[in-house]
C-alpha cells in the first residue's frame, strides 16, 4: 500500500471521526442542557409552590385567629352586655305589663341568640373541647332545629385523632359545603357522612337541583368570584386532600373529600 494512500485514509478517518464526535457532542449537549434547565425550572416551581402553601397556611391561620378573637369578643362583651340589659329589663317588663316592652324583650332574646349563633359559627367551642365529630354533629343539629333543611349525619369507622389545625380546616370545609348546599341547591335533604378509614372521607349529598361544577369553576375563576368554592379548594389543597364532585342532575349532587388524617 503506497504511503500517500495510507496518509489519505488516516487523515480521512480522523477527520470523519472528529466530525462524528462533534455531531454527537452537539446532540448530547442539547439533550442534557434541556434536561438540566427543565429540572432547574421544576425545582424553582416546587419552591414557589411551597412558599405559596406557607403563605396560604399563614393567611388561614390568621383568619382563624381573627375569628376566634371576634367570637370571644361577641360572646364575652356584646353577649354579656345584652344579657345584662335583659336582666335589667326583666323587672320593668314585670312591673309595666306593657306589650311594647314584651316585644323589646323578645327582640333582645333573639339578638342574644343571634350573637351566640354567630359566635358559635365563628369558632365552635365544641370543636376545641370535644373534637371534629361532636362539632359537626352540633352544627347539623343546629341546622335541623332551624328548619331550613333536614340534615342527616352518619359516621362510621374507627375515629383517628387529628391535629387541631387540621380539624379546624376540615370543619370549615364541611361548614362551607353545607352552607353552599343550603344557599344554592334548593334541596330539602342533606346527607353528611363521615367515614373513618385510613383517611377521613367526607361525603355530602343533597337532593337539590345539582350544578355544573366545572362550568361554575371556570366562570368564577374568570370573574374572580366563588370565594366559597375557592376557600374549600384552598383548604383541600393545604390538607393534601382530594376533592371529587359528582352530579346526578337534575336530582342533586355529591361532594367527596378524602382527607389524610396525618399531615
Amino acid at each position: 500500500m503506497e504511503p500517500a494512500r495510507i496518509d489519505f485514509i488516516v487523515m480521512f478517518s480522523i477527520a470523519t471521526a472528529v466530525m462524528l464526535l462533534l455531531a454527537l457532542s452537539i446532540i448530547l449537549f442539547v439533550i442534557f442542557y434541556q434536561k438540566r434547565i427543565l429540572s432547574e425550572q421544576l425545582k424553582r416551581q416546587l419552591l414557589e409552590a411551597g412558599y405559596q402553601q406557607k403563605m396560604l397556611e399563614a393567611a388561614l391561620e390568621s383568619q382563624e385567629k381573627e375569628r376566634s378573637r371576634l367570637a370571644s369578643d361577641l360572646h364575652d362583651s356584646v353577649g354579656a352586655m345584652l344579657s345584662t340589659i335583659r336582666l335589667t329589663l326583666h323587672p320593668v317588663v314585670k312591673a309595666g305589663n306593657g306589650q311594647p316592652l314584651d316585644q323589646t324583650k323578645q327582640l333582645l332574646d333573639e339578638t342574644i341568640e343571634t350573637v351566640r349563633r354567630i359566635s358559635r359559627d365563628l369558632l365552635p367551642a365544641s370543636l376545641e373541647r370535644f373534637g371534629l365529630s361532636h362539632a359537626v354533629q352540633e352544627m347539623c343539629e343546629r341546622i335541623n332545629m332551624s328548619g331550613i333543611i333536614e340534615v342527616q349525619l352518619s359516621e362510621s369507622g374507627h375515629k383517628i385523632e387529628m391535629d387541631k389545625k387540621r380539624e379546624v380546616m376540615v370543619y370549615r370545609i364541611i361548614q362551607e359545603m353545607i352552607n353552599n348546599a343550603i344557599r344554592h341547591s334548593k334541596a330539602s335533604l342533606l346527607k353528611v357522612q363521615l367515614v373513618w378509614t385510613e383517611t377521613l372521607d367526607i361525603i355530602i349529598q343533597d337532593n337539590g337541583q345539582g350544578f355544573d361544577y366545572e362550568g361554575f369553576k371556570d366562570h368564577h375563576n374568570a370573574s374572580k368570584a366563588g370565594l366559597g368554592l375557592y376557600s374549600i379548594e384552598t383548604r383541600v389543597s393545604l390538607l393534601g386532600a382530594k376533592l371529587d364532585y359528582s352530579t346526578v342532575f337534575p336530582k342533586g349532587s355529591q361532594f367527596t373529600v378524602k382527607v389524610p388524617t396525618a399531615a
Binding site: A15, L22, A23, I26, I27, V30, L38
Partner: peptide
Amino acid sequence: VKDLPQENLLDMPVFWINAAVLFFYSCTFM
C-alpha cells in the same frame, strides 16, 4: 435549546430527524 420545549426532546420527531441530518452529513462531509 432557546425555545426550551417542556416535553422530553427524545419524544419530539423533529429532534430525531434533525439529529439524523447532523449525524449523516457530518460523517459524510469529508
